[in-house]
Structure formats: structure tokens, C-alpha cells
Design a protein around this nucleic acid. Structure first.
Lengths: 329, 329
DNA sequence: CTGTTAGCGCTTTCAA
DNA sequence: TTGAAAGCGCTAACAG
């Protein structure tokens, strides 16, 4: 393995000059720089970033904490993060927490140990924030909720969910079921709050029997939908708190011989790529997943490089996308 | 920031002893170890892994090169990689190459620069292998093709595609279209080869008009399917080289007023989570994505740690999963 | 079993 | 504009 010493030797210069020529080309003489570059070529020099990072106490890496990489929405957010990180010369560590606090803390050690300069948290879990005081490195939430502290980026989950209920009511539904996420999930709870707000607004009594709790997976959407349509007074519409559950629900409803939206309308949340290609195409709330990742990463890098320390909370716009799964009958 | 010196001072020991107590607890006296641990607590010591890695010339990180993180199949493979890496104490760098050679090479610098110990390549592109001779770090392919050099893990793409054709023929189809991936993609080409093999086997003439080229996306499946069903002599079955395109195709076919599988049967490849929940549920070839990632990561770590240098090519089993989208009429 | 010491490869004063 | 030299925080001989 060649080192900066080899380059110095080959160029007949000191290591300091080689370092300068490589890092701040402006401060060395033109001719010197060329000699260095030639020597670099000649000995096939590849800087050892481990050494540079140790010396400068920077790693130019960020850690992304994601509850589950296989989730379509999250992978879109990550794609956004990656593109900004790439543009700024940062690498990204992927930390799949699987909603486990143990894994999360283990991964945070990367920052503690100087292997990463900061973290982007995709989980809305604000429990993280309780330890915020002891956390010395920069953190930003890419998918925050109302209670998430700054800096963070999020959408108005409550407002979006209420809009969806408005739409379902406007389409002729008054008996509206919900397939929620886990009770411990802030996104799920905020969307549920928006759902209740919507019902109240339209003077529809809340019926706890019409609310089921899934885990954001296709399978749970399927299972919970079967329960709902099996009810004595089944709902005419089901609002699922993410698209995966909605797609699972559609399948369950059709398998029972019912039509979507003919017998039961179904709505989702997120607008993942599959939503537009579901059969029938899925009405949902579009979150700008990619842009949220880009925003979060920009904020994080600004903080790492101390270009901006203001505690921003960026609320991104969402869009109600009406498709066939809720077309009025 | 506290260092190993602070711990040594607090414990009244040398830094060497502290290092030993932390790294190989067995070789220091019980009492000493306890003193160290107490001191670590007391000064809130967090080892600087940058320094350790520099000293040991290891990074305990691997680089995963993926053509597109948002692809469901790839994110499953990554989940498998991550779980094995985690178990062995390795972190994973995510390199989204977007099929760009420039990005790929940029990311490879991480290994060149000692920030990663090895790489797992998810792209089947064997062009990478041409440079293999100059590549000094360990590489393993998690989704190889026939031409991929060892070490790699893959499935029998040709055989699997042929099996699918067998199934379609057995279900009463003789006019079978194909929606392929890009001509430059080895997986696409191997599956196409299997498709032709299947046709030959059943004495069905190959009709180039029945083969369309997409890019593995939902949208391209939709577009190419529209072309196929618009043909004067439209196919009675369409074999898509991945599930995304198959799901896009199903939507296009149904939107045209035709029934799946009634008028046109549709098959996919991969068996991503959405396949079983498509409407109708999608017949496909199941690849053990997660297990492939696990295998690849195990092989890579074995090589990094020189526990096993044999040039293995692991061929994983695939499964034809017959679902509603191809049920015989 | 523990301490002393010499670096790992780089950047960055300080002097020239 | 360049060089000498110190040192980032850690590990691993080598002694004792």
C-alpha cells in the first residue's frame, strides 16, 4: 500500500507539500503541484482516509436509522438522502433498527465512536428525543411527527388524514372504517387523530369497533380488512394508514366477492409507486418521500458543517390523490 | 472528548493495559479489568474507532453497491446483508449506483481508501469483472448471472424462465409474449434465453414481435403490455421478467377491458411481497432474496477475515409460485 | 500480568 | 512557497 511518503519521495518533496498540493492546490506553486500529481500517478497513490479522518476528527459519513429498509416509503426517503449526501461528498451508513431500541443504540455508537458525523432518523419515535440532552452529535428527523423536536422534516399527518375523511364523506360514505398502524407509532396515532377530527367535522359518531390496528404490512391490512367486512354493520369505506395495508385490504375485500369501490371504498397513505398500479388504482395521500430525505440530509450537513444551527422544522406539502379505489358510486 | 489516556489516568494504569482490558479481557487480571471498567464509566469513555481502525488497518465496514435502493427485490437482499453484517460486527455503507459506472467507481474509492473492507455487488453486470484483475479488495456478487465470476451467489435464471414457459404452455397458452428488461442487463438476457428455450422445447416458433423491452419499472410494464395487447394477433399470456413490470402489465390489460387471466395470463419474476397481494395474485418465480443477501455477506466476511478463500459460486433454489394470474381457463 | 515505546498515515503548526 | 516535526488515539511488540 502506497502512502503519502512514497509520493513525497517520488516527487522529491516533503509529505507536507504533497498533502497541501492534494488538499488545497491553491497554496502550492503550479510546478510543484504538477510534480505531485505525476508522482501520485506514478506510485498509484490512494490516500488513507482513515488517517485523514483521525487527524481531522471528521468522518464525512452519516448514519441513517431506518425502522425497515424493505418498506417502500422508507427506501424512497433513503434514495433522497443518498443523493444529497453524494453531492456533498458524504457516505451513508445504513442502520436497520427493526424498531428495536437495542439495535438503534448499537448503531448510534458509530457516531459516538467518530465513524459518522451525524444521524438521520426515519422513525417518528420521539422517545429518541428524551435522550436528546445527552446526545452530542447532530440528529435530524426525516419523517417527524407533531411531537418531534427540531430539526426535523415532516408533513401534516393530522390534516392529511382529515382531508381523506372529507373526501370519503364527499364520496357518499358515512360508515368509515380505519386500519391503523401500531398504537405505539406516532404517525399512526396522528393519522388516527385526523380521522376522528374528520368524523367529528361531519357529525359522524366515532365507533371504536370500526378501528383496527395493523402493523403497516400487506398481511395485516388483509387480516384487519377481513375483520371489518365481517362486521354486522360493515363499513362502506376503509381508510388505511399506509398503502401496503390498503393494498392488502383491497385483496381481502375482493377475495370475499365484494367490489372495490362498488361495495367498499379503500384509501391509503404515502403514495408509494405501487399505489397507482394497484387494481383498482389506490386513492391515497402523497408524501414527497424523496424530497423529505433530501431536505433532511441538507439540514444535517448544514449542522455538521456549522453553516446553519437554527432549529428548523420543515413541513412538506402533501397531496390528496384521488384514484379509482374511492370513485363515488 | 475523552481518550484512552483519560481512562488510564483515572485507573492508575497504562494505556496499553486499558487497551488490553477492553480488547482481550482474558489476558488481564480480574481486578485490573474491573478498575478499567470503572474508570471507563467514570470518564464516559468512547473509543475512537477511527484511531483503532487506522492502527489495525481494518474498518469493519462493507460497501453494498446497489443499482437502485427503491427496488423491492434489492431492498430485501440488502436486509439480508445487513442482518449478517450486524451479527459479525460490521457496518454497511450503502452505495446507490443508479446503474452509473461513474457512481460505482466513486463508491469503490471507499474501499481503496480503507474506509470499507470489501464490497457486495448487487448488479449482475459482469463488466465489473473485467477490472477484476486490478481490484485488490474482496468482492462478492449477491445476484450473479451465468457469466459472473466467483465468488458469487445467484439462481438459475435460464432454468427458472424455462419453467415458467412450461407452466404457461401447460395452462393452455401457445402464443406467449415477453416483457424483458434492458438489453444490457444480464438477468434480463438470461431469462429471455430461458424463455426461448421453453418455446423451442414446446415447438413454438419464436416471434420477435412478441418480445418487448422495458426497464424493470411499473410504468414500462404498463406501456409494453399495451403494445402487446394491441397487436393484431395478441398473446394469450405475457411473461414479465420482474414483478414490477408484471403488476404494471396487469393494470394495462385490465384497463383495456380485458380480464387477467381470462383473456391474458400474466407472470412475473422475483416474488416480491406485493406479488401475492396483486389483483389477481401474481404467478412468479420466487427468488430467496433475503437468503441471497445473507449468503453473500457470509462469503464476503469469510474472505475478509481469510477464513475461506475458495472461489465459491452458490446457486440458490428458486420456486415457481403459481397464483391466480395464470390459472388455466 | 503490566508498562514503555514505537508507530499506523495523515494534517498542520512553526520556522525558514 | 516549502520543510521539519509534532501529534490525532489507538494497538502491539518487546521488556520486565
Amino acid at each position: 500500500m502506497t502512502t503519502i511518503m512514497d509520493v513525497a519521495r517520488a516527487a522529491g518533496l516533503s509529505t507536507a507539500t504533497v498533502s497541501r498540493a492534494l488538499r488545497s492546490p491553491g497554496i502550492v506553486a503550479e510546478a510543484t503541484r504538477e510534480r505531485v500529481m505525476r508522482a501520485v500517478e506514478q506510485v498509484q497513490y490512494r490516500p488513507n482516509l482513515l488517517a485523514r479522518n483521525l487527524r481531522t476528527d471528521r468522518s464525512f459519513a452519516i448514519l441513517v436509522l431506518v425502522p425497515g429498509i424493505a418498506n417502500s416509503f422508507f427506501s424512497d426517503v433513503i434514495a433522497g438522502i443518498e443523493s444529497v449526501a453524494w453531492r456533498h461528498g458524504y457516505s451513508v451508513f445504513l442502520g436497520d433498527t427493526r424498531d428495536s431500541r437495542e439495535r438503534e443504540q448499537h448503531y448510534e455508537q458509530l457516531v459516538d465512536n467518530r465513524l459518522a458525523d451525524g444521524v438521520i432518523q426515519l422513525s417518528p419515535d420521539y422517545g429518541f428525543e428524551e435522550r436528546r440532552a445527552q446526545v452530542t452529535w447532530p440528529v435530524v428527523h426525516a419523517c417527524g411527527c407533531d411531537l418531534t423536536e427540531a430539526p426535523s422534516v415532516r408533513i401534516d399527518n393530522v390534516g392529511a388524514a382529515k382531508e381523506m375523511v372529507d373526501h370519503l364523506v364527499a364520496s357518499g360514505n358515512r360508515r368509515i372504517g380505519a386500519i391503523c398502524g401500531p398504537r405505539t407509532n406516532p404517525h399512526a396515532m396522528e393519522r388516527l387523530a385526523g380521522y376522528r377530527l374528520g368524523l367529528d367535522f361531519h357529525d359522524i359518531a366515532f365507533d371504536r369497533d370500526l378501528v383496527r390496528y395493523g402493523d403497516f404490512s400487506l398481511g395485516s391490512g388483509h387480516a384487519r380488512a377481513e375483520e371489518l367486512i365481517g362486521l354486522a354493520t360493515a363499513p362502506t369505506a376503509i381508510f388505511c394508514m399506509n398503502d401496503e395495508m390498503a393494498i392488502g385490504a383491497i385483496q381481502a375485500i375482493r377475495a370475499s366477492g365484494r367490489d372495490v369501490p362498488g361495495d367498499v371504498a379503500v384509501a391509503g397513505f404515502d403514495d408509494i409507486a405501487f399505489a397507482a398500479y394497484a387494481t383498482p388504482s389506490l386513492t391515497t395521500i402523497a408524501q414527497p418521500a424523496r424530497a423529505m430525505g433530501e431536505q433532511a440530509c441538507t439540514i444535517l450537513i448544514d449542522r455538521i458543517e456549522r453553516k446553519d444551527d437554527t432549529d428548523r422544522i420543515v413541513v412538506m406539502p402533501h397531496t390528496l390523490r384521488i384514484r379509482d379505489s374511492t370513485r363515488p358510486r
